[in-house]
């Protein structure tokens, strides 16, 4: 959400913590991302009553419980369309979607292209740990084939997907990537997503010390590489070239792409204006169209 219109406050990061205790394993990257979210909300000045945090199912999908805001903890894979409905119903509020790689790209994968191309005004933070943690370690759409896991005892038979390339291709208007070990970078990119009007996608690598034994904190630290200072974030081709590096053993960190395009709710609003919509529209006019 462009939070320009949302009621502002001057809360500290800790004021965005709810009273539900966090339940992740020690050493989990998600702690860093959650703290970055608190910081981003504080820096952006979002009033908790003006924010809906929405998730599906998974370790990271527990996040809304830990955030002081309106929140929905929905079904596996369905955070995106639930958030789309909430956003269209209340375009004056900020919408934050939080979830993992399995939730977003496997079971919920059918929804991702449509939120991106429709430019639904929300900020989607994807906690990418390359594993299903809540079900104790199965390979996910972003797992590397060399990973031996619960259902891949001999290694994975599949190539991982590239979330950034996917989002750029489908038309997301704010695409960024970070690493949970760099919480200040995460916070800055999430804040940027909240301030962007349109579909903001932030992919954040997050180590899972319990189940993903190959994508360690050290692995991610070596993998990520800051987006070059001279990168033009309005150049889709350049962004796609950066995103492709993820398939070549390096991964860009920072903002890759940002575009201004009308959001779905803006286009819906234009339709209302086009027919002179009013809350007190005379319904007899609709009834009369159905007379013989």
């Amino acid at each position: 959400m462009s939070i320009a219109a949302v009621k502002k406050t001057t809360l500290k990061p800790k004021d965005y913590k709810s009273d539900v205790s966090v339940v992740w394993c020690p050493g989990c990257g998600h702690y860093g991302i959650l703290n970055a979210i608190y910081r981003a909300l504080s820096e952006a000045g979002v009033d908790p009553s003006q924010l809906i945090s929405i998730s599906g199912i998974g370790c990271s999908s527990r996040s809304p419980y830990f955030i002081n805001s309106y929140k929905m903890h929905t079904l596996h894979g369905r955070a995106g369309p639930v958030a789309t409905g909430a956003q269209l119903a209340r375009p004056d509020l900020a919408i934050l979607v939080l979830g993992g790689d399995g939730d977003g790209f496997s079971i919920g994968g059918g929804h991702m292209p449509h939120m991106a191309r429709k430019n639904v005004d929300m900020t989607y933070v994807l906690f990418d740990n390359g594993i299903y943690g809540l079900t104790k370690g199965q390979y996910s759409p972003t797992s590397r084939p060399e990973m031996k896991a619960y259902t891949t005892p001999y290694g994975g038979p599949e190539e991982p997907m590239n979330p950034l390339l996917y989002m750029l291709t489908y038309g997301a208007t704010y695409v960024a990537q970070a690493f949970a070990g760099k919480p200040s970078v995460c916070a800055e990119l999430i804040k940027g997503g909240l301030e962007h009007r349109g579909f903001s996608y932030i992919n954040i690598y997050s180590q899972c010390p319990s189940f993903n034994k190959i994508d360690t904190i050290e692995f991610y630290r070596d993998l990520v590489e800051a987006v070059p200072k001279d990168h033009d974030v309005t150049d889709l081709g350049a962004a796609i070239n950066l995103a492709r590096q993820s398939s070549e053993g390096r991964a860009p960190m920072g903002l890759l792409y940002k575009a201004d395009r009308p959001t779905l709710d803006q286009r819906m609003h234009a339709m209302v204006e086009g027919v002179n919509g009013r809350p007190d529209y005379d319904l007899n006019q609709i009834i009369d169209l159905n007379r013989p």
Binding site: T84, G85, R90
Partner: peptide
């Protein structure tokens, strides 16, 4: 899902 989200939103 969208209907549920919109309904939650009031």
């Amino acid at each position: 899902s969208q209907v549920l989200g919109a309904s939650y939103a009031g």
